[in-house]
Each structure stands twice: as C-alpha cells, then as structure tokens.
Design a protein around this nucleic acid. Structure first.
Length: 290
DNA sequence: CACTTGACCTGTCCGC
DNA sequence: TGCGGACAGGTCAAGT
C-alpha cells in the first residue's frame, strides 16, 4: 500500500496526535508483525514516551525518549490508526466509528498510551512489520544504506536523478522507479502517474531515454508526489491515515485505476499491461515506446 | 554481474 | 451460490 505520500501523511497525523505520550502497554497479536519483540524489549518500550516522528523512503520511524525507536514498514496493507477513547472528532469524522470497531481481525500490534489512547497497527496481508532498533543505527550509512535519495528533499536535483538512473541503464524505467536504491518512496501508483505525465513508456530502457525525457520525468515525479501529499495520499483499497481518513489523490489520477477510460490528454482509452511484473497503466498514444 | 521472477499472506472480484 | 484463478499499494531471496 503506502508509498511516500501515504507514509508522510501518516507521519504528519501522528506528529499531531502522539508526540509526548507515554507507552504503558504493547500487545503483539501476530508475532511475525513484530519480529524482534521479546519480554526483554518491553523494558525499552514501557514508560518510554514519543519524541519525534520521522520518515525515510516508505518507512516510518517513531523516535522514543530512550535510545530506541520503533521502525515500521506498512508494505501493501498496513495501517497505523490512532484512537483516543476520551476524544471524539465529531461531525461524522471517520475516526469516531473506529472507536468501537478497533481492534479488528487484521489488528497485529497495539500500542497503548497512559492517557488511555491507542495506536493500532493493522495489516490484512501480514507483510508489514514493526521493529524496535537503537536510534544510532537508523542512518543512511547503516540501516538505510540501500536507499536512494528522497525525491522531495531540496538537495535532490536533476543531476542526482540522472546519475542514479545511469547506474542501471539496461533496465526499464518503471523497474528503476520502483527500485528504492535508485530513488526512495515511489511505488506502483506514482510510477505510473509520473511516467504518464512525462509521456514516457514504462518499458523504455534507461539507456534509450533522452536528457529531455529524464528532465520531464524528474519534474513529473516531484509534481505527482506533491499533489498526492496535498490530497492526503491514495486510497485504492485499505489505506487510512492516522485519524482514519482515506486519501483523495485517486480522484486526480490520470492513469492509475483508469483502464478503459479516456486519456485525459488525448482521449484514447487507457490500457493496462504488465511491466516489471506489476500492473501498469498507460496511454499508448501519449507514451510511445522508443 | 545485472536483471527478473516467485514467494510471502489475506481478501476480493470475475468468469464459468 | 460455489469454485478456481488472477490480482492487489512492497520487498526479498532465488532464479536466469
């Protein structure tokens, strides 16, 4: 599920909701969802408070007041939803209905705070995970050493993007965008959206792209990610933010989920093909293979 | 070596 | 209505 805009939306929500709160209970309902949890690590968690929320690529980091952090990957269907039993958002806010419905059968880990509020880690497909790790390991030279640049950071520029792509010149551009070591945070939805906006066929080999193609793609990636972040991410099936809201980006999507519908640039029907063994949405007229 | 494919899981949808 | 198969936002290990 969550790609960069979704994880960032969750991070912003949790930043409002849980900073300063103290953990008083951790329940692991599905042990493989928290692979390094043990009785001993309870003492690093219980009594610790939440210091800061961070994100690197699609990974969320909850820095605690101790030497440790909770590191979370939501993979395809993970959710982190906060519920405060003393607080209602009101006016039909989706969070209010979660008060009674969580935990549910996809709840894998529960973090409980001493103000009686709760953070639920739900994950239908069980691919996601929570780990506790010492903060000092969570750097780009250690835990994140296989991750490429963050596309929304100021220091990410066209020259960096181009040199990252050229490390893998014989692969398709779509596979490259999905490769977290080339550029961090892009997944299937935003790969398709960025390639459509840049008018590039996803099967194009990197070596065949012109400088102009790469420049358009660079701009398109940033535009697409920023728009999605502004819309609170994409909800295709499962995604919810920390308050239980769905994302609104897919209403603005140009190709993802629009197979059979007219291309918003030329009117030809969008088709769905397979590239890098992922479902891939394109307009054949606007995105011609080189 | 660089690159691609299956496997991990659960649930849903579509065609017969 | 039931059943099998394909597919779903991600990432690895294992294959070519």
């Amino acid at each position: 599920m969550p790609e960069l805009p979704e994880v960032e939306t969750i991070r912003l929500g949790l930043d409002e909701l849980i900073v300063g709160k103290t953990i008083d209970q951790v329940l692991v309902i599905n042990p493989s969802s928290f692979p390094n949890k043990s009785v001993e690590v309870d003492r690093y968690l219980i009594g610790a408070s939440v210091e800061k929320l961070k994100r690197r690529a699609k990974i969320l980091i909850i820095d605690l007041s101790t030497e440790y952090a909770l590191v979370i990957h939501l993979k395809m269907t993970g959710q982190l939803v906060y519920v405060n039993h003393q607080h209602r958002f009101g006016a039909g806010h989706p969070n209010d209905s979660l008060v009674g419905s969580l935990p549910d059968k996809s709840t894998r880990v529960i973090l409980h705070f001493d103000d009686n509020s709760t953070l639920f880690f739900n994950d239908q497909r069980k691919f996601g995970w929570v780990k506790i790790l010492p903060k000092y390991l969570l750097t780009d030279t250690n835990f994140f050493k296989l991750y490429g640049p963050e596309p929304l950071q100021k220091k990410f520029n066209l020259a960096t993007f181009k040199s990252q792509l050229l490390k893998h010149s014989k692969t398709s551009i779509k596979a490259a965008l999905l490769n977290q070591s080339i550029i961090a945070g892009i997944g299937n939805i935003y790969a398709d959206e960025s390639l459509w906006l840049a008018r590039i066929h996803p099967k194009s080999l990197i070596i065949d792209l012109t400088d102009d193609d790469v420049a358009r793609l660079f701009k398109s990636i940033i535009a697409v990610l920023k728009l999605s972040l502004q819309k609170g991410g994409s909800t295709s099936r499962n995604y919810l933010d920390a308050k239980g809201n769905k994302g609104n980006y897919l209403k603005f999507a140009n190709v993802y989920g629009r197979e059979g519908q007219p291309c918003l640039n030329c009117g030809q029907p969008i088709i769905k093909i397979r590239v890098a063994s992922r479902g891939t949405h394109i307009c054949l007229k606007c995105q011609q293979l080189k």
